[in-house]
């Protein structure tokens, strides 16, 4: 209700004020102004760019590296010292790593050598086995000859020892026994 009344009042006032005097839009003036505006905005941009370029040029010409203050110098010195310390620490660490690696390699080598040392010499082993066999044969031959009086079998065994192990000490013993038997037969 109030809305309608307000609307009516406003419209009545509007009617009373009447239409505006015909606003004449002068198109030639408008085009001239538009052209001027465009020119101004373009000129403005160009001028702004030029000013910026000049300012940059002046700035780059006049700018000086400021003298470092005492505090800045101290900071620079400290930074240099820190860098130096860092370099030497890195070098020391590298050396420590190298030494540790060497030690590790050395201990591995020692272990391998100990293992190798624990393995018996195969030639010596064979020599021992040969010696043992020769001894057993001579021992058996002695028993055949002395305890069982099997002179023939004992002579065969002594000869076998001489044939199989000619350079062994028991071959010499076998030869000695054979000569004893020969001497006794004579």
């Amino acid at each position: 209700m109030t809305e309608d009344k307000i609307k009516n009042l406003l419209q009545e006032a509007d009617r009373m004020a009447g239409p505006p005097a015909q606003a004449r839009v002068d198109l030639s003036v408008l085009r001239r102004r538009a052209g001027r505006r465009r020119l101004v905005s373009l000129g403005g941009s160009v001028a702004a760019a030029a000013v910026l370029m000049i300012a940059l040029g002046i700035w780059s010409l006049t700018i000086k590296t400021p003298e470092p203050t005492r505090e800045q110098e101290r900071i620079i010195t400290l930074e240099a010292q820190v860098n130096q310390l860092r370099t030497s620490t890195d070098a020391a660490l590298a050396l420590i790593h190298e030494v540790l690696e060497d030690e590790r390699r050395q201990s591995q080598l020692d272990e391998l050598e100990a293992k190798l040392a624990s393995i018996p010499d195969p030639l010596e082993e064979i020599r021992k086995q040969v010696d043992k066999t020769a001894f057993i044969l001579v021992y058996q031959a002695d028993r055949l000859y002395r305890e069982l009086n099997e002179t023939k079998s004992a002579v065969e065994t002594y000869n076998r020892v001489i044939r199989l192990f000619p350079r062994n000490q028991w071959a010499a013993v076998a030869r000695q026994r054979l000569s004893e038997i020969e001497n006794r037969r004579i």
Partner: peptide, 17 residues
């Protein structure tokens, strides 16, 4: 009621142009 309609109209159509 009334305003400076001519000036404003000129400005409006200039902006529109």
């Amino acid at each position: 009621w009334p305003g400076e309609v001519e000036d404003v109209s000129q400005e409006v159509f200039l902006a529109a142009y």
